[in-house]
Design a protein around this nucleic acid. Sequence first.
DNA 1: GCCTTTATAGTCATGGTGACTATTAAAAAG
DNA 2: CTTTTTAATAGTCACCATGACTATAAAGGC
Lengths: 248, 248
Amino acid sequence: MSAAGPARVPEGYDPHAFEPFAVTVDLAVCTVRDGALHILLIRRGEEPYKGEWALPGGFVLPRESAGQAARRELAEETGLPDEVVAGLHLEQLRTYSDPDRDPRMRVVSVAYTALVPDLPEPHGGGDAAHAQWVPFGAYAGLAFDHERIVADARDRIGAKFEYTCLATAFCPPEFTLGELQQVYETVWGTALDRPNFRRKVLATPGFVEQVAGAARLTGGRGKPAALYRAGAATALHPPLLRPEGRPS
Amino acid sequence: MSAAGPARVPEGYDPHAFEPFAVTVDLAVCTVRDGALHILLIRRGEEPYKGEWALPGGFVLPRESAGQAARRELAEETGLPDEVVAGLHLEQLRTYSDPDRDPRMRVVSVAYTALVPDLPEPHGGGDAAHAQWVPFGAYAGLAFDHERIVADARDRIGAKFEYTCLATAFCPPEFTLGELQQVYETVWGTALDRPNFRRKVLATPGFVEQVAGAARLTGGRGKPAALYRAGAATALHPPLLRPEGRPS
DNA sequence: GCCTTTATAGTCATGGTGACTATTAAAAAG
DNA sequence: CTTTTTAATAGTCACCATGACTATAAAGGC
């Protein structure tokens, strides 16, 4: 009810009468690197879960929204300049609110998914100099319910690839269709037919637009590939369905 | 970070040191009634927004998750027996956390979408005897940011209809294909070709299963229609795309 | 030169879909 | 009791997107 609804709460409501909730954001920052989906993790320096992997994140400050907090934390963790962070794809994933998800107190966390291109430096801005890219699955148990969050993020990304142009968020500003295909293949874990993939992408207006006259060698050998930029389109109609329609 | 992350928060963290956040749930309870999508609204009995329409909802209690709170509130608002409420489709929509969304204090609200069949009685359980079905759009401004939540709920429902079997959640336990089609047409606001709709639904394994030997007259006239039940399938592959691929 | 590698062009059959028409089964109108 | 109306159901046909291919072009390595 946003403190609305029936008269369960008196008008002179005292915020401190309730056990306070802390509200945090958790960030599932993902990238494609060396043909594998990676996620940004930090090592916890304190109890609980000291020394274990966890998602970056932090408290929502009194005067900011969860989305603002997420972008602020993203800037701190990645150490990227503000104008770059402003362009990154950041999307609310879902909210995790199990009463026992943090042993210290009641913490409700709004999780966000960020899709970033493969960044040159591992990063290490601000507080989290120990942040690190870790391949999906290459961790043995994360702190809190972060494993669940990571799994949800992966599911969401895979699903969104089917009907959005989101895949370009994993690519640098200019990319080849082969690179874009590799992003799809990495996220879905399936091989795609190259000519068919080309045909589909190019047939979707606004998915990608060719960079005039530019070409780049991929892997040093073979015919140079044309370069493309992300187009203005955001949705994919009709969708690009992954083979065998597996929901996960 | 779910109170994790860098060492911004000392170990002996005092929950009361921060300005407390209240956490609530807002419910977008939707149904299809008389060929129009309706939403369950209540009249606010107190300031702020006294006398205006608002979504039902309430505070998340100290020992329950947001999902549990949503189902509890749903039971209270609809006044339905627990076993019925347990079967209703309830899904987290997203979280709204603008610092100024509630003028009284900092309230973060987790919104849920519920899809219910057209209930016999308007309802009126518990606290909210003044709850009422209102057609989408037939309200002049809702309290707080609830108009935004309602719009998001509608978008989400429309989108999910394309690739899930969710439409049956709007139908009674047994329904005709014509009724199912009306649900689609109502939610999407478009007319669908009947034979093609039949073909698609019946070609999707597990979407619906026929009730043996049962038939019902629709509207008093015409050939009686066969009755169907919701099947076990939850996803729709390939999807049932709405005409013209309009995102909203 | 020839081989390998990668990008790009094109073919062909199939399946799902949009746009139809036809038939059946009921009630209401005459 | 026949005709009309209404709605469900069956079936047709063309088209387009797709999956599975084959073929060509352009680069480097040998």
